[in-house]
Simulated assay, not measured.
Amino acid sequence: MNDAAPSRPLAIEAASAPKRAKPSNYPDPFASRMARREKHPLGDIFGLRNFGVNLTRLLPGGESALLHRHSRQDEFVYILEGKPTLVTDEGEVALAPGMCAGFPAGGVAHHLVNRSDRDVVYLEIGDRSPGDEGSYPADDLVARLSPDGRWVFARKDGQPY
């Protein structure tokens, strides 16, 4: 074993993973829309660098993200509990446990909303492609993934938040 390598678990109970410290990376006024979302970043626990995995809980009235699409990142969701609605710029689909959806880079804008009276729990998986950008058709927002892996947000006219 390499003494310089950080000690990482081999396996964990996913629900026991710590919640993400900051509820949302979005700037105000968008961050407050994520108040009914809880993310447990599972991939980070294991030191995954090429893709991320989150165990995410949406409380009633919650949404997974703003309606968005990525320029380079593929995304995938798998529903574990509850009945969210997949909202896209091409329509809506009711989801249930055992269902999944995938979003290739540059494809449809999408997000999940919880219109039910019960929590929704799902896995979300996305790659960490360098140079990725996020576009938000329903909001005055664009995002760029910086070289250090942080999202940098601006208005559509280029003005920073």
Results as ranks from 00 to 15, higher is better:
17 A>M: 04
91 G>I: 06
86 L>D: 07
123 L>E: 05
41 P>S: 09
1 M>F: 10
138 A>E: 15
138 A>Y: 15
118 R>I: 00
137 P>E: 03
121 V>T: 01
36 R>Y: 05
71 S>N: 01
73 Q>N: 13
27 P>D: 08
44 D>V: 09
158 G>K: 12
40 H>L: 05
119 D>S: 02
50 N>P: 01
143 A>Y: 03
86 L>V: 05
24 S>Y: 04
79 I>V: 03
88 T>F: 10
131 G>A: 12
21 A>Q: 13
102 G>D: 08
42 L>T: 12
122 Y>W: 05
54 N>C: 15
76 F>D: 14
83 K>R: 15
53 V>H: 07
133 E>I: 07
124 E>T: 15
114 N>L: 09
46 F>Y: 03
70 H>V: 12
44 D>G: 15
151 W>V: 06
72 R>Y: 07
57 R>H: 13
69 R>T: 14
84 P>H: 04
17 A>Q: 04
127 D>T: 08
3 D>V: 00
136 Y>G: 00
125 I>K: 06
52 G>I: 13
34 M>S: 00
24 S>A: 04
72 R>L: 06
155 R>P: 02
92 E>K: 14
62 G>I: 01
127 D>E: 07
6 P>A: 06
50 N>Q: 14
126 G>D: 05
150 R>M: 12
140 D>S: 12
48 L>G: 08
69 R>P: 07
117 D>C: 02
101 A>W: 08
128 R>T: 10
142 V>M: 09
69 R>N: 14
161 Y>L: 03
103 F>V: 01
23 P>Y: 03
15 A>Q: 12
47 G>K: 06
109 A>I: 08
55 L>D: 07
130 P>H: 05
87 V>D: 12
4 A>F: 04
148 D>E: 00
145 L>D: 06
121 V>F: 13
68 H>N: 00
57 R>L: 06
90 E>K: 10
42 L>M: 00
20 R>V: 07
87 V>F: 10
97 P>R: 15
15 A>M: 11
25 N>R: 14
122 Y>A: 10
49 R>P: 08
102 G>Q: 03
85 T>K: 10
159 Q>G: 14
146 S>A: 15
130 P>D: 02
121 V>L: 15
145 L>A: 06
140 D>H: 02
78 Y>R: 11
41 P>E: 13
84 P>D: 02
89 D>G: 08
141 L>E: 09
133 E>K: 14
97 P>S: 06
91 G>S: 07
54 N>H: 12
136 Y>E: 01
64 S>A: 03
44 D>H: 15
63 E>V: 00
114 N>K: 10
134 G>E: 14
38 E>A: 10
103 F>C: 02
148 D>S: 11
